[in-house]
Amino acid sequence: MDRELILDVRGVAYRYRGTAHDALAGVSLAARAGDFLAVIGPNGSGKTTLVRVALGLVAPHAGTAQVLGRPPAAWSRRALARVAGVVPQREDNLFPQRVRDTVMLGRYPHLSLWGAERAEDRAAVERALERCDALRLADRWLWTLSAGEYQRVRVARALAQEPRLLVLDEPTAGLDLRHEMDLFELARGLADGRGLAVIMITHHVNLAARFADRVLLLADGRPVADGPPGDVLTRETVERVFAWPVAIEAFDGRPQMIPLRKGREP
């Protein structure tokens, strides 16, 4: 049962320069190989900041973060990128690019400074595309992809890094049902089949509850609840954090949230 501890964040706090209160305070998160964790919470609750602190883009003001037992600052960015792959919420391509080339960017941490791409890099790109069911998109230009295809390509780029930890920051925003489900199934499959630790930041409370092993619920940068979906997603907690009346029903052994109409509670 003791799968390898890949990410260990303990009691971190962080405050952005020029702001009056903490974006994060006292947040902990531990991810082992094969875990699928969901981080949920209202807008501005510190979900993305948690990723920044966990992977060393910013240094915590309190608490510690460790990747494979070492703080991110002790890793070079290249070495860290071989362990942790991230699909950031936002990015924009300055120049037009084809799918295969953008996935090849994921090989950067494996390439030497001057060296050309090797056969193993090209193989890793094909594997990553295949795993994301994006092989047939390989020769397309990025700007011709639909939103759902584009997200799968970005996941493929993170997989091309051959990481142990995969972080997905709201990958399903703006996607339709099928593409949403596709992404969650893909992430779950990577955790189960390849032993990746997967952390998904999402606004889909119900999908998080259906797919994740554990859910971390944040509000105003503070942890409200952390544990199996059934423990975290109680009516009282969800109503308080999201400031809306809800009902919680069980489906397939997992809690599912149903938002209520105002003034028409059953």
Partner: peptide, 23 residues
């Protein structure tokens, strides 16, 4: 010339570039 590869990453934006291993 030695900055060629990381400059490819920078075209994605600062944060994605750092997650892909660029300093």
């Amino acid at each position: 010339l030695a900055a060629a590869r990381p400059l490819d990453l920078l075209a994605l934006g600062e944060e994605p570039a750092r997650h892909l291993g660029a300093d």
